[in-house]
Design a protein around this nucleic acid. Structure first.
Lengths: 139, 139
DNA sequence: AGAAACACTTGCATTTTGCAACTATTCAAT
DNA sequence: ATTGAATAGTTGCAAAATGCAAGTGTTTCT
């Protein structure tokens, strides 16, 4: 388990979410409000079930998300961002901002996403508060 | 070549640098001032030569770095960040900040790195100016 | 009672990564 | 001028990660 290449903070971070899928999962939880396995499966990028299973388990292990039984449905589990996960928001925002500036993105993207990317710190703080409300309820 | 999973700006960005190595290479160019193949090979994370070759070519293709013959040494090539590459700085800084907060990093890390991470926008702007001077000289 | 929804699991093919040895050219020292 | 080290890679193969399609065992819905 402890097999890290170095103790540089950037490397340690990338060993957690430096792959093709982890940040996309976080993105969908943050910006699209997805909370269930089936919802996360519906992304445009078409993640496979085994990969999604694997990543959710890893993200939970790393303390970025938590998993709880859905009180209303015995087959469903609800995934939540932890505080540590919510604090990935500035990273996602920076990546989104960079992508919007430098890559030919789909302009039919949710307009609130644009606002979040362009809105700067105040909008981000608001967003963070909102996420805390949605995800950190219990405990 | 054009085989992207979606046109979401975050996904487009991650299709470029959403792997274990690309951002580490950028990190070394930005924060450690590395400009040569051999220098980039010396990271703590021990990247293999074939992977480094592959990533440098990809990053050049994507317009994030540029490659030029070293005027003083016929075997050496000097790699530079482009404007597009320099603008990855906020992403690296956000990742570094997150890692320092949430993972047990090596405290013997270069102290200027800590300053950059913690210094906020003014320090980042200064850093950006410095990088532009070092990397965008010619042209 | 039967069908659909749910969160996975499994097996296999493909792709990516990692490792170690090797190459061809150029530089630097004798 | 010759030799050895340094340069930026290649190459071939093994290991790991990813991708794909089908299957599993409950639970919920109709």
């Amino acid at each position: 388990m402890e097999n890290q290449k170095s103790h540089c903070p950037i490397n340690l971070s990338l060993e957690i979410f430096g792959d093709k899928w982890s940040l996309l999962i976080i993105r969908d939880m943050m910006f699209a409000g997805k909370r269930y396995f089936r919802e996360l499966l519906q992304s445009d990028e078409k993640i496979a079930t085994n990969i999604l299973t694997d990543r959710l388990a890893m993200l939970e292990l790393k303390g970025i998300i938590s998993k709880a039984a859905d009180p209303n449905h015995k087959l469903k589990y609800i995934y939540s961002l932890t505080k540590k996960g919510i604090e990935l928001l500035p990273i996602l925002a920076a990546i989104g901002t960079w992508g919007m500036k430098h890559e030919p993105y789909d302009t039919s993207i949710p307009s609130h996403a644009k606002k979040i990317m362009k809105g700067g710190k105040p909008v981000l703080d608001e967003m963070k508060k909102h996420l805390a409300k949605q995800h950190l309820k219990s405990k």
